[in-house]
Amino acid sequence: MASSEKYIQSKLDERKLQGNYRALSPESGLIDFCSNDYLGFARSTVLKDNIRRETASHPQSLNGATGSRLISGNSAYTEELETQIAAFHQAETGLMFNSGYDANVGLFSSLPQKGDTIICDELVHASIIDGARLSYANRYIFRHNDLESLEGKLKNAKGICYVVIESVYSMDGDTPPIAEILQLTQQYGGHLIVDEAHAVGLYAAGLVSHLNLQDKVFARLVTFGKALGCHGAIVLGSDMLREYLINFARSFIYTTAAPFHQLAAIKAAYSLLKTSSADIAQLHANIGLFKMNLCVNNAYPLLHSDSAIQCLILGDNHKAKYAAIQLQNAGLDVRAILSPTVAQGSERIRICIHAYNTSEEISLLTSTINNIIHEI
């Protein structure tokens, strides 16, 4: 019998040889151009003070939830918070999960059944793919943002059909034609589900609400670990969907609920978001400044994106890693995104712009990138 250690070592060696070996690294102290903290909430002293006041106003709260929400981990505070969040996003109701991964796995593993169909954009998040794999539904992939490709899959759909997209794609930063996708989905009797993880904050309550399509979308996924600067997620939809997930979503049923401190942080973050129009405007101004100062060429294109996520395609793991190292040596925290996280040939540096980045920091970033492009 083969040794497990030999198998593990061979796979690690193979990954190192391919140039896509992953390793954890501690905080760097560099200028942040890689985190999802788009509005600066994770580092906000105002938010930290608000969380402290919220927790202090509930001295009876426990350190831990003590169990799943169906056993001992539920509270009136949790349910009131879900109601408040749903109202902010103009949804009927919502159900919170411990993470965005839990939310997507719970929804997609429990809702579609054998004989149903899930149709996903080819660039949806791994958590959606994993959830869909756990279902017994037929699964199809359509070309990224391609309506013709989507329609071809819709024509072959059986049972109840769910079309799944993101409103801002995490590795490309672009946005889909949501209204057109929704119309096409409804034309074939399907239901649209939108993951809004990277759109909340950029578009306040998300792109679906920004486009006034919230009443036509079947469900939305909102995470709290990006622009909101804390942790957790919520599935937004109908009261009936909420009750269904409580009864059938295993990642909700069989896990300890979030502790009070996490709930207080989420509540405080939403209160801050309601007064953050200036930060959102600054974020968009910084995105525009970055794009204006960058000198790209056809060999190394910048993907089209109006979001905080900006990606320069270098097409090779080694080039992407070299560029990231050069940027880090200049004091800029930019990371390489390598295959297999992205398709081979589309390796890149992924740059996240934030409301708190100064014009001087953005100028240093763009001038360094411009020099790297001429070197490689």
Rank of each mutant, 00 (worst) to 15 (best):
H284P: 06
A204M: 05
I178L: 15
V164P: 04
Y21P: 07
S110Q: 14
R250W: 14
L147S: 10
L241I: 11
I246W: 15
G225F: 08
L62H: 13
A343I: 03
I31C: 05
L273G: 01
G73H: 02
Q344Y: 01
C120S: 11
F248N: 09
D174W: 01
A91W: 11
G237R: 09
T223L: 10
S363A: 04
E122K: 05
H304D: 09
A258K: 13
D279F: 05
A204N: 12
A65G: 03
N156D: 05
Q18L: 14
D316C: 06
H231F: 13
Q262M: 14
T117H: 12
P301F: 08
S28F: 01
D172H: 02
D174I: 06
T66F: 13
P59F: 06
D49Y: 08
Y38T: 09
G173W: 01
S167C: 08
T78H: 11
T55K: 09
S238F: 05
I71V: 04
Q84N: 15
K291F: 12
Y7T: 12
Q60H: 08
Q9R: 05
I129Q: 07
I31S: 07
E92C: 09
Q60S: 11
G190S: 02
L81S: 14
S25C: 11
S277H: 11
Q60F: 11
Q90K: 14
Y322P: 01
A86M: 08
S277P: 01
M96N: 14
A205P: 03
E360Q: 02
L302F: 02
E27K: 13
G206N: 00
G201F: 06
D215Q: 09
H374A: 14
I178V: 15
A86R: 05
A285E: 15
G189A: 01
A258N: 12
Y270P: 01
V342D: 01
G201V: 03
Q214I: 05
Q90A: 14
H125G: 15
P26I: 10
R53M: 06
T83N: 14
P176Q: 07
I178S: 10
A197Q: 08
D49C: 07
Y356D: 13
F248C: 02
E79N: 12
E347Y: 02
I349L: 00
E148C: 06
R335H: 05
F260V: 06
I362C: 00
L332Q: 03
H58C: 12
A227G: 04
E347F: 01
R335Q: 11
V194D: 13
I8K: 07
Q187A: 15
G232W: 10
H191Y: 13
I373M: 01
Q183L: 09
Y101W: 12
L30S: 08
L70M: 13
I8V: 14
N371E: 09
L213H: 06
S339Y: 00
D13F: 02
L294M: 15
A278C: 09
L62W: 06
G100V: 12
